[in-house]
Write a protein that binds this DNA or RNA. Structure first.
Length: 568
RNA sequence: GUCUCAGUAGCUCAGUAGGAUAGAGCAACAGCCUUCUAAGCUGUGGGUCGGGGGUUCGAAUCCCUCCUGAGACGCCA
């Protein structure tokens, strides 16, 4: 509806003496369809114009009526209610979707932008839990959105492949590990060894010294330590890759923490040169008290670097070498303070692009109300969740559509879609308590609902024997049914919602939008006959609308990282 | 203790660049398949928008304060 909003704003601007953009922002959707398609509240202008809102509304209405751009304009108190020319708008929306669906969404505002976006970033030798789904899928969706708007996206998987825990992994593996078992199920087995190590170390503190020694050997390049470490990485990556393939997730760069081992000295040097480093309690820190932030530790009292140092080195690399002119981090909200500190230090280092860095935070995933903890072995494996969801999808297919070809493939798309959509549809800052009953429910506001709606539209088009070309002349002279218009209105919000989703880096807006469109489509499908329309031109138009809806839904699903089967 | 984030129907959440009677889904109940996929559609019941102040023509939305929950707060990431 953006173009209609601007049409109104342009006409109203001279009347109220405010910039067009500002007025366009005030145009809203009335709460009730009887009140028109768009509305402009005029209370805001009253003080400046020294006139009653109702008077202003009347003047505004007169101008809008005179323009002849709208079907009807009405004044209701201080509101001006506008009824748009439905046929023309319908033709515009359907036409855009028929040629290039993305035209309705993206105006390619971000051409010339390049965004380095850090998402997923699991830890090596640990399993991929449901918790990782958040960073992975929110990040993947944001990457898709930015790319569609013209940005050059560099997706980065910042693997946790370094740190003292690898001393424990190595020590544990040497004591109790078995090559075959690890190979068969790398992340689960390595986690088990890790958990066992923690349990045993409680009783025998000497084990911790053993682990420290092994990490030291790893740092010093000891061959045995090195090759075990590399093997853990290779096996873990194989397991992760299988999951990424199922989820359809891809990264341009896979660079673990260890990649920056030789790049941190330069950061420390620069900080020292710029006089940012001060000594405090034996450690070297950047004092940020002037900015109401706690100090950022750069070197621990034992001389070793820490994750802040690593993240600084990584940020410089992403900007200077990979060419990301802004950096985005899709990382849990518990790291908010850390990123505030890192961004501030970058700014103090004179990197003016620090202001464009964003931490896309999200709430914590819990299970039965409890915090998940890998160290204590409290994990819900993502693969288990996907397996259950796919099995449930398969069960429902067997029940409802036993004749369906390639059932397994469809079940895979639906089951995974249910899990992914469930994670994307809500405001990302909320903590989520993972419950199987939610994920395995395929009714209502769910991924399968959206996919089902898509399949339904496809089915109608199949029955109609539709080829890809329509004679679009019909739209403007057809009188629209309420449910048809409702559907057009919802789809016409694409551009606004898309841009808001990008500006706020929030894919849930796209999920909400496509849910609204699906609801409108299902109502349309229920209320008016498509193939059995009274006249040929009505039938033609409804098929066009069905085709447009199908493309719209598929486009949104793909943005969110879901597949859109044509039958289910 | 300090800071940050959250608090909307029984449950999960939309709505938060201030606007008209606060909306969905789930669960419950009642309808709708001789017609295009019922994983759907329609209806009913269900609300001190955490409490209290304030700003405004108008507040779930902005400000202050209190309550509750989560997270963070120097050598893990």
């Amino acid at each position: 509806m953006k173009s209609q909003k601007f049409t109104i704003a342009e006409l109203v601007a001279p009347v109220v003496g405010l910039p067009t953009v500002e007025i366009a922002g005030l145009v809203e959707y009335p709460p009730n369809p009887d009140l028109g398609d768009l509305a402009l509240p005029c209370f805001r202008f009253a003080k400046q114009l020294r006139k009653a809102p109702t008077e202003i509304a009347k003047e505004v209405a007169a101008v809008l009526t005179e323009s002849g751009n709208f079907k009807d304009v009405a004044v209701a108190g201080g509101y001006v209610n506008v009824y748009v020319a439905q046929g023309a708008v319908a033709k515009e929306v359907v036409g855009a979707l028929r040629t290039e669906p993305q035209n309705l969404f993206a105006e390619k505002r971000l051409i010339g932008d390049s965004a380095a976006i850090d998402y997923s970033s699991p830890n090596i030798a640990k399993p991929f839990g449901v918790g990782h789904l958040r960073s992975t899928m929110i990040g993947h969706a944001i990457a898709n959105l930015l790319r569609e708007d013209g940005s050059r996206v560099i997706g980065i998987n910042h693997l946790g492949d370094w740190g003292t825990q690898f001393g424990k992994n190595i020590a544990a593996y040497r004591m109790w590990g078995d090559e075959e078992t690890v190979r068969k199920n790398p992340t689960r087995e390595l986690l088990e060894l890790y958990v066992r190590f923690h349990a045993e170390a409680e009783k025998h503190p000497a084990l911790d010294d053993e682990a420290r020694a092994w990490f030291k050997r790893l740092e010093d390049g000891d061959e045995e330590a090195r090759s075990l470490w590399q093997w853990f990485i290779d096996e873990s990556l194989k397991a992760f890759q299988a999951t990424y393939d199922r989820l359809g997730v891809h990264h341009e760069q896979v660079l673990g923490e260890s990649f920056y081992n030789d790049k941190m000295d330069a950061v420390v040097e620069e900080l020292k040169e710029k006089g940012l480093l001060t000594e405090s309690e034996g450690a070297e820190v950047v004092d940020l008290s002037a900015y109401d932030l706690p100090p950022c530790i750069i070197r621990k009292s034992d001389g070793a670097t820490i994750y802040a140092t690593r993240d600084l080195a990584a940020a410089l690399y992403r900007h200077d070498v990979l060419g990301g002119n802004r950096l985005i981090y899709v990382v849990g909200a518990e790291q908010t303070l850390h990123f505030q500190q890192v961004f501030k230090v970058l700014e103090l280092m004179g990197r003016e692009w620090a202001k464009d860095c964003r931490h896309v935070a999200f709430g914590m995933m819990k299970y039965n109300g409890e915090r998940l903890s890998t160290r204590r072995g409290k994990v819900v494996y993502l693969e288990d969740v996907l397996e259950k969801a796919v099995a449930e999808a398969r069960r429902i297919i067997d029940e409802k559509n036993p004749e369906l070809p390639n059932k397994d493939d469809v079940a895979e798309a639906i089951g995974i879609g249910a899990v992914v959509f469930n994670d994307l549809k809500n405001y990302r800052m909320h903590d989520v308590d993972f419950r199987y009953e939610d994920v395995l429910n395929f009714d209502g506001e769910t991924g399968p609902y959206v996919q089902y709606t898509h399949a339904r539209a496809c089915s109608v088009l199949r029955k109609a024997g539709v080829k890809d070309n329509f004679d679009s002349s019909s739209a403007s002279d057809v009188v629209l049914q309420p449910s048809e218009w409702r559907l057009i209105v919802e789809m016409n919000k694409a551009n606004e919602m898309f841009e808001r989703a990008i500006d706020q880096l929030d894919p849930s807006l796209i999920a909400r939008l496509v849910l609204d469109v699906c609801h409108a489509f299902n109502r349309f499908y229920h209320d008016v006959p498509i193939l059995g329309a009274d006249t040929e031109s009505e039938k033609e138009f409804r098929l066009e609308l069905t085709d447009a809806s199908r493309r719209f839904i598929a486009y949104c699903l793909n943005l969110l990282g879901l597949r859109a089967p044509e039958a289910m």
